[in-house]
């Protein structure tokens, strides 16, 4: 085959890659279009009140997304709160402290945790975690149960169980990315700290500080995973649409309600309301993505941080 003039100047190559890149844009727009098109009935019937209505009653044909938005955000942030310190601890141990013999197997195991299908976590949550959480709830002293954070009957299933399962699922992701970030911190930074008489802990703190944009990115990646997680959460959160501050109360998330009710939604309005929940989740993901980008940008800008590979932006499943 001889090389044609077109092939030589690279225009075909550029065209091919351009099409691939544009396909991403087309895909996002396509998803947005399908979500809006599929939720027209509900959009017309409820308008913006959909966002702040607490009622979800398919029989009375009244639908509001607030309990699900609340449930998704609450479970995700709670999971992040639990997962971030553990994940950072794992990352620091693996990259800075671990004896060389342990490093490979532990890294492998951490990454293996990320590969389990979420239904496996759901089963584990149902049969192992929920009974433990129930025992914990029963053992909670009476005076604590008057605090809104811990009120409600001790069911086991609920916000706490969901957040714990999510945390377990998020840890390997965040830990793996944070480890990569720490690995990318130049040895010269640690050496500079050691040469000034830093202890190991102080040198590690300096490395964490140097990689802070990447670390934030790692945490945000975990948040993205938590926001979109469906199966495992559905199995342990209790599936009760209510806005409650209690971590013991059974609640509901956006992804869970879509998964649970989609097949049974005979009423077109019900179906459209579910698709609109999908639209809300889509928008929420975009907003959180944008906010985390902004955060990374601000942190990076402040000190003109050198380029540590900022971890991939969060992508909701």
């Amino acid at each position: 085959m001889t090389r044609t003039a077109v092939a030589r100047d690279g225009s075909l190559f550029r065209l091919g890659l351009g099409v691939a890149a544009l396909a991403v844009v087309a895909l996002v727009l396509g998803i947005a279009f399908v979500l809006v098109d599929g939720s027209l009935l509900s959009l017309r019937a409820f308008g913006f009140s959909f966002w702040r209505t607490q009622v979800w009653d398919p029989v009375a044909r009244r639908f509001g997304a607030l309990p699900f938005i609340w449930g998704t955000l609450y479970s995700s942030f709670l999971a992040l709160l639990l997962a971030a310190p553990v994940a950072l601890g794992i990352a620091v141990f693996l990259s800075e402290l671990s004896p060389r013999l342990l490093r490979q197997p532990l890294t492998f195991l951490t990454e293996l945790l990320a590969a389990f299908p979420s239904i496996v976590y759901g089963l584990w949550g149902m049969f192992v975690l929920v009974p433990v959480v129930r025992k914990l709830e029963v053992a909670t002293p009476g005076w604590m149960r008057h605090v809104p954070l811990f009120s409600g009957p001790p069911l086991g299933v609920g916000m706490l169980a969901a957040a714990l399962v999510l945390a377990v699922m998020v840890v390997p992701f965040t830990a793996a990315v944070a480890r990569e970030v720490l690995k990318a911190v130049p040895g010269a930074q640690r050496e500079a700290a050691y040469a000034l008489g830093a202890t190991r802990w102080e040198a590690i703190r300096m490395a964490l500080f140097y990689g802070r944009t990447g670390i934030i990115g790692a945490v945000m990646l975990g948040l993205g995973r938590a926001l979109g997680e469906t199966m495992a959460v559905t199995m342990v959160i209790g599936n009760n649409p209510q806005v409650s501050p209690s971590i013991f109360a059974p609640q509901y998330t956006m992804a869970s309600v879509i998964a649970n009710e989609f097949t049974e939604a005979a009423d077109p309005l019900h179906l459209h309301a579910l698709v609109e929940i999908g639209l809300v989740l889509f928008l929420l993901t975009i907003v959180i993505n944008a906010l985390s980008r902004l955060l990374l940008w601000r942190v990076g800008k402040k000190e003109e941080a050198p380029a540590v590979p900022a971890a991939a932006a969060p992508v909701a499943a």
Binding site: P186, A188, Q189, E191, A192, A193, A195, L196, M206, F209, Y210, E303, E304, A305, P306
Partner: peptide, 11 residues
């Protein structure tokens, strides 16, 4: 004290 080959100020 020590000064390194490439300057390595903290960010």
């Amino acid at each position: 004290g020590m000064v390194f080959q490439k300057s390595n100020p903290f960010p």
